[in-house]
């Protein structure tokens, strides 16, 4: 009986692992095959990778899309970390009843679905376009600006600040460090792990963001990676090999982050529920 239970657990886990990994296998193998082989169900690596690379580069400007996505994701991450950690620190270190109320109101914004915001935001950026076109509709800045601040990230930093040794601040104050200096010279260097975890969460969600860029970006020159994949995927005569190659390229950065920074990745997920 016990043996039977053991074996069935292994069978379930092996089955689950195969199902989880199969789409990755399919994507990687298909990127080396001709379109007709992919749709024919070929599941062994082929020799068409170089042709697929050439075809991909000649149909779409994936380099530009990678660059756009990288600019957006990196800018968002840097600004989001700064703004949210300042707030998370402020709410926890200078805790007061009034600030707790404000904090709870900010948390309510997590319940607001983006679908409800996109029309007003689109109109807002339409107005901005008339005053300052460089941050208006169809600019990379317009993708970044509304996604910088999330209540989640403020919450994340506040939760992690609870574990920050506050004696360090007292020591700094005695040494005459200013309140802002305490944050930049003591808090930030001490909280490297928290920043790393927050950077991963923010970078991933920015890199993968689809709906807002879809609404606000219009010209192909400004396309991000998800927009490019989506438009390749909905083309009328899709070249499956080429599309799968594009998806491999799009997945690579986040997959690498996961494999090399797994510790921070999980810390980032868990940091929100401490």
């Amino acid at each position: 009986m016990n043996n039977f239970k053991q074996i069935s657990i292994y069978i379930i886990l092996i089955g689950a692992s195969i199902i989880s990994v199969f789409p990755f296998f399919f994507m990687i193998v298909s990127s080396t095959n001709k379109s007709v082989d992919v749709s024919g169900g070929k599941l062994i690596p082929g020799t068409n990778l170089l042709t697929n690379i050439q075809n991909l580069l000649s149909t779409v400007d994936i380099g530009q899309a990678l660059l756009n996505s990288a600019i957006i994701a990196i800018t968002t991450t840097v600004l989001a970390l700064l703004v949210a950690s300042l707030a998370g620190y402020g709410f926890e270190i200078y805790r007061s009843r009034a600030k707790d109320i404000v904090f709870n109101i900010l948390l309510l914004s997590m319940m607001i679905p983006f679908a409800a915001l996109m029309v007003p935001l689109f109109r807002m950026f339409g107005t901005i376009s008339e005053i300052a076109p460089i941050i208006g509709i169809d600019t990379l800045a317009s993708v970044v600006i509304p996604t910088i601040t999330t209540a989640f990230l403020i919450f994340f930093f506040r939760q992690n600040t609870k574990m920050f040794p506050k004696e360090l601040l007292e020591a700094g104050r005695i040494d005459g460090v200013s309140e802002l200096g305490l944050f930049f010279r003591i808090y930030i260097p001490t909280m490297k792990t928290t920043y790393a975890a927050a950077a991963i969460i923010t970078f991933m969600s920015s890199w993968n963001n689809y709906l807002w860029p879809l609404v606000v970006l219009q010209t192909p020159k400004n396309q991000t990676i998800p927009l490019l994949i989506s438009s390749l995927g909905s083309s009328y005569s899709p070249d499956y090999g080429v599309i799968m190659l594009a998806i491999v390229i799009a997945t690579l950065p986040t997959a690498l982050i996961f494999f090399f920074l797994q510790k921070y990745f999980v810390a980032g997920m868990m940091g929100s529920i401490k």
């Binding site: 989880s20 789409p23 399919f26 890199w207 993968n208 689809y210 998800p226 995927g233 998806i247 996961f258």
Partner: peptide, 20 residues
């Protein structure tokens, strides 16, 4: 292996599923 799907972008895995 079971966690791996969580590293994909929603658009990327959607397109894969469309073809699968």
């Amino acid at each position: 292996a079971i966690f791996l799907p969580a590293v994909t972008s929603l658009v990327a895995y959607s397109v894969i599923f469309k073809y699968l």
